[in-house]
């Protein structure tokens, strides 16, 4: 009986998401077989598709790691989108105005600037929360829109490429582009960097004293304060790192994929990162898996559109649904276990 309960507990979220997808597919009258085969071929049909999944995973992983550091410290960072844009802007400015620098000097400079820009953008809500107790939720949301409009303004005025009628910056020089990992794909070295950063975040949060303090502040700020931990400092630090990683995702996106700054460089990566962080339980390994899952979902959805004409918005529905059932799963189908504890 108890085992049954547990199985149901794991099966109902998956089943309900799957049922919704199938129901919507039936509703628009596409062939289920071709839709699903398109979906899975899109995810790992050939080396190019796999590389596309990893290209999507990279910014999600980086920004997701950023969000997870914030969440671990109780800093609800909903501003990853804006921080990503600011990071992209800063590294683009470096790439465009210092494009003649050699590769090995320019790329690290862009990295640092992207990280700092994102970090500083997150630092404002961080300081406001730590010093003055202002809600970082609303604040970071507002900062998203300010950043997006600021970039939109930049690429229409002082950063605009005068040779093109469209609002975008000049294309980056060769030395400002991240090298490709696999020829004839878009997969770039940023993916490796993201994996390394995930490992570093794990070591930082779980193997260092500072990381322990950050997690302690997230669990119980008052208790941490009472044993002499500087809670405010940890919140500010985590907001800096959190935004920095999101800014880094912006750098990776412009330098590795787009090679120029334009509107919509992030397709909601900042908001998806919040969900990646949640689905991955704020743990680097979980975040990596969740980022891969969401990346695959996105590419699979695109492929399903090509092969069976299913609107890509189905991916968004599924994503929202996954998070909703993930949140509800704790409550429904777990009753028996709770009672046995008491």
């Amino acid at each position: 009986m108890k085992i049954n309960r547990n199985i149901i507990h794991y099966i109902w979220p998956v089943a309900s998401v799957l049922m919704t997808a199938i129901l919507l597919l039936i509703l628009i009258g596409v062939d289920l077989g071709s839709a699903f085969s398109g979906f899975f071929r899109g995810m790992f049909g050939n080396i190019y598709q796999i590389s596309e999944v990893l290209v999507k995973t990279t910014p999600l992983l980086l920004a997701g790691l950023g969000c997870s550091i914030g969440f671990q410290c109780g800093f609800i960072n909903l501003g990853a989108e804006g921080q990503l844009y600011m990071g992209a802007l800063a590294s683009s400015v470096v790439a465009i105005f210092l494009g003649h620098l050699p590769h090995l000097l320019l790329i690290p400079l862009m990295m640092v600037c992207g990280f700092l820009a994102g970090g500083l953008w997150a630092l404002i809500p961080g300081v406001m929360k730590a010093k003055f107790g202002l809600s970082e939720v609303i604040m970071s949301l507002m900062f998203n829109y300010i950043a997006i409009q600021f970039i939109a303004l930049a690429i229409r005025t002082w950063l605009k490429d005068p040779e093109y009628p469209f609002p975008m910056s000049q294309p980056f020089t060769e030395s400002a582009q991240l090298p490709r990992l696999v020829p004839r794909t878009r997969l770039h070295i940023g993916f490796i960097i993201a994996i390394v950063l995930a490992a570093l975040v794990y070591i930082f949060l779980w193997k260092t004293a500072r990381g322990f303090q950050i997690r302690a502040c997230g669990c119980n700020p008052r208790a941490s304060f009472c044993v002499g931990v500087n809670v405010n400092l940890n919140i500010i630090l985590s907001s800096l790192l959190s935004g920095g990683l999101a800014g880094f995702a912006g750098f990776v996106e412009v330098s590795g994929v787009q090679h120029k700054l334009m509107d919509g460089i992030s397709s909601n990566y900042g908001y998806l990162a919040v969900m990646v962080s949640l689905l991955g339980s704020n743990h680097p390994l979980g975040v990596a898996i969740a980022a891969l899952l969401l990346g695959a979902l996105d590419i699979g959805g695109l492929s399903m559109q090509r092969s069976a004409g299913v609107p890509t918005s189905l991916t968004t529905v599924i994503l929202g649904m996954i998070v909703i059932v993930f949140l509800l799963r704790h409550h429904f189908g777990k009753k028996e276990k709770e009672i046995s504890h008491e």
Partner: peptide
Amino acid sequence: LAINFFVLG
């Protein structure tokens, strides 16, 4: 956030 995504989709 999840509701926003769900409805948008």
